[in-house]
Amino acid sequence: ILGGADALERRWPWQVSVHYGGFHVCGGSIIDEYWVLSAAHCFNRDKNMEAFDIYVGLVDLRFAGNHTQWFEVNKVIVHPTYEVYHPVGGDVALVQLKSRIVFSDSVLPVCIASPDVNLHNATCWSTGWGLVSPQGHVPNKLQEVQIPLISLPLCRLLYGHLSYIMPDMLCAGDIRDMRTVCEGDSGGPLVCEFNHTWLQVGIVSWGRGCVYPMYPAVYARVSYFSKWIRYHMEHTPPPSQPLPALARVLGVSVSVLAALLAVLPML
């Protein structure tokens, strides 16, 4: 994030760090005890799913705090329109964790913007551990920045012939100041407060680098995907839990006993 500030602990309790091979690569957000929302391009097909780790309750990338939890990925569901109608269109991924997140003051879910959300005059924030300068400086502490939303017509005007901005996208940026998201913020949330409740309205997706403020950051528009998100959260079975060794032994003993009882009357 360019032009942001260090975030205090517990300020963005839904923020997630997606690690690949032990390094932060993308952001994400907690939307449920088993589910994280992120960008599809963070989970490319050629990546080894077992090399991903998900961290929640994290502020400083160097240290796990008292509330930090670590998770393995069970399943990644990429939106079916990803890269279909636009090189970065449908840039949404639902990540199911292998075990349940324990919520606390520092670890909480964000709400998903519904299709009828009205973003007029909304005050919105982006957060992430992405680059903090065009020279490539990386932060240790989670960064936050308040970013104004930009209408689709203005965003299309600003990008001109470079790229078409699709209806499933949302633009935000400050075309005067250097306040924007950057590489490494991908997958992270753009959230706005409505009536004391924080709604996620965007997922950091793409842009023309982060050096040119004239080109706003482009996010996946969460309200466009909210029905798809809710459908998969409701209809995907929770991950199967491995049986502890003792339970397996007990299970075998019970089945042997049942077999004996069934055979005994025949003797």
Partner: peptide, 27 residues
């Protein structure tokens, strides 16, 4: 549909935790 979980009134899918609320006040 055994795995289907109820949706709370807050819109969160976690039965006991409301979404979008944090426990510190903004500036």
């Amino acid at each position: 549909m055994a795995h289907r979980r109820p949706r709370s009134q807050s819109g969160a899918w976690s039965p006991d935790v409301a979404c979008g609320h944090r426990y510190i006040q903004g500036k």
